[in-house]
Write a protein that binds this DNA or RNA. Structure first.
Length: 230
DNA sequence: CGTTCGATGCACT
DNA sequence: GTGCATCGAACGT
């Protein structure tokens, strides 16, 4: 399947200036944008509905907390590049690097509402290694489950460690604006980041409240803030 | 519904 | 050797 765009709009990766901004602004603004991966002429894409900010060496949950290491080097590099790493030995997680000029920070992409290449996503998800019991799920994976969660979305999109440090202004892996109105998806909400044991005081997880593709349990609307408090 | 727990690889101390 | 920015099957309500 070839890359398909909304009526006639040219392929236009977001410029580096989009990423070279305060990370909380980038985390908010990636919601509603489209993540695209083109592999061997086949595109997969989805609207970002969940993201988390990791900001600087003073953020204990950020990979830059120990200072510069071989692994976290992309965080110290130019904004608009991918930071992909392996976690729990089996999941590749994809971030977009933000904040130039010495502040190591990034936004973790946590969930997408799939758009293009859904059958290819389903094929890739079916190739997931089986657990110790060797049992596979009974039914088909639903569309909204394909890219629900950071490990699931990289599996469905075919994003691997080979994409680490890739330039997001290129033509292989990028974000673009297809004019989707965030209001059509739902209301933007902020809350604590998921799956971490430190840095939970920061409400730096941004998501579309109530969207089916958002990971974790649904959160009652009164439990979330509408703006982050850095 | 809810919680628990094992699989899995690599960076880091 | 330790500890993960996870996932989902297998239990227990």
């Amino acid at each position: 399947m070839t890359l398909r765009l909304r009526s006639g709009s040219p392929r236009a990766p977001l410029p580096r200036s989009f990423y070279d901004r305060p990370t909380l602004d980038v985390a908010r603004d990636v919601i509603g944008k489209v993540l695209v991966h083109v592999a061997r002429g086949h595109a997969t894409s989805g609207i970002i509905v969940e993201a988390e900010a990791y900001i600087g060496e003073s953020d204990p949950a950020c990979h830059a907390a120990p200072g510069l290491t071989r692994r976290n080097r992309p965080l110290y590099g130019e904004p608009g590049h991918a930071y992909v790493y392996l976690n729990y030995g089996m999941h590749c997680l994809v971030n977009v690097v933000t904040e130039a000029r010495g502040l190591p920070a990034a936004v973790l992409i946590r969930a997408l509402a799939p758009l293009d290449g859904i059958s290819l996503m389903r094929t890739r998800r079916r190739k997931t290694k089986l657990g110790p019991t060797g049992r596979r799920r009974a039914g088909e994976i639903q569309d909204h489950e394909l890219c629900r969660g950071p490990g699931n979305l990289t599996r469905a999109m075919g994003i691997t460690l080979a994409h680490n440090e890739m330039d997001l202004t290129g033509s292989r892996l990028y974000l673009e604006d297809r004019g989707n109105e965030v209001g059509e998806l739902g209301e933007i909400a902020w809350g604590p980041r998921i799956g971490i044991t430190v840095g939970t005081m920061h409400p730096w997880r941004c998501f579309v409240a109530g969207h089916r593709a958002v990971s974790g349990r649904p959160i009652s609307s009164h439990a979330v803030r509408v703006e982050p408090s850095p």
